[in-house]
Design a protein around this nucleic acid. Structure first.
Lengths: 160, 160
DNA sequence: CGCATATTGTTAATCAGGTAAACAGTTTTG
DNA sequence: CAAAACTGTTTACCTGATTAACAATATGCG
């Protein structure tokens, strides 16, 4: 088995077998996610929400009065990491931190009218981006993919 | 539709519907990848290779004498970002940068004997980690998943 | 009651992974 | 031969995330 010669031109190398990476699900999942994320950001444009900020807003809209601790847990990140995300959403006037009567530690998060509107518009854009990007997948494939992704998520005992 | 009351106890909140995120493939793909990556690192332990360093080593083993530019392209990252990865592999004595006769710019990457051995051992560990983590998936599901991930990868025109 | 323990939001330091821009040295091309 | 292109590299920077500490507040229990 002779060693492959050094390819000088990038377009001259289209190897039949790239490496063992080809059969590793983790590697291909990362590459697929990077492709999705890139398209997500392109779809939302320059001043758009980042994936994580969009996710946080989505959960606040779905769970009015949620605390930051609970939200961090749903997102699977640390409380400390959430602060900057909520700061941004507050700066955009998409939500408010409001003190709750019973407990002076927590600050209930509530989406503003503007935040709700921006969320609905962004959600539509995100759904359009996924439909366009994943147009080559059949409805069955998308459904199967979701089922599998959720199964994998749940192997992490910290998830949800 | 009354707003949900603020849940004070984390274990008291197990909402039937979390948010629209539930039906977004991008979000679930990220969560699934995070789970896989976490298990990958746990499987390889403290002094183990990171996913990206393992990937780079895999490609060097599969493509002896590859240049850093070509390798970066295969990995889908910038040349500049690869330098630190190759530095680490060289520090571990897993590969060598050797000058090639024809072109004094490029440095051909070649895995050492030690690097090959470490790679084979690590690959076995990684495969065991995936088999264990994805034990709930049938062979058909794994196969379908790989096909779909590759389809999604290829929506990125920069890929491969 | 009072004290230990726990929780909430926050800051600060740090890390991993990655990009973009510039650069010197070296081909390649018109 | 001059202009353009390519290679590896450094530097500065960015995003996303973690850990450790902290003050304020709440809860549990003897």
């Amino acid at each position: 088995m002779a060693p492959r010669a050094l390819a000088k031109q990038t377009n001259a190398e289209m190897p039949d077998v790239v490496s063992d990476l080809e059969i590793l699900i983790g590697y291909n999942m990362k590459r697929a996610y990077v492709a999705i994320q890139k398209d997500f950001r392109a779809a939302l444009g320059e001043g758009g929400l980042s994936p994580r900020t969009f996710s946080a807003l989505s959960l606040v809209v779905a769970h009015p009065n949620i605390s930051q601790s609970s939200l961090a847990r749903l997102l699977g990140i640390e409380r400390s990491g959430l602060v900057a995300i909520i700061d941004e959403l507050e700066r955009r006037n998409y939500l408010t931190r409001s003190h709750v009567p019973g407990d002076r530690r927590v600050q209930a998060l509530v989406a503003t009218h503007e935040g709700n509107a921006a969320y609905q518009a962004t959600l539509a854009t995100v759904q359009a981006h996924e439909e366009r990007l994943l147009a080559t997948l059949s409805a069955t494939e998308k459904h199967t993919l979701m089922q599998i992704l959720i199964k994998i998520r749940l192997t992490d005992k910290e998830d949800i």
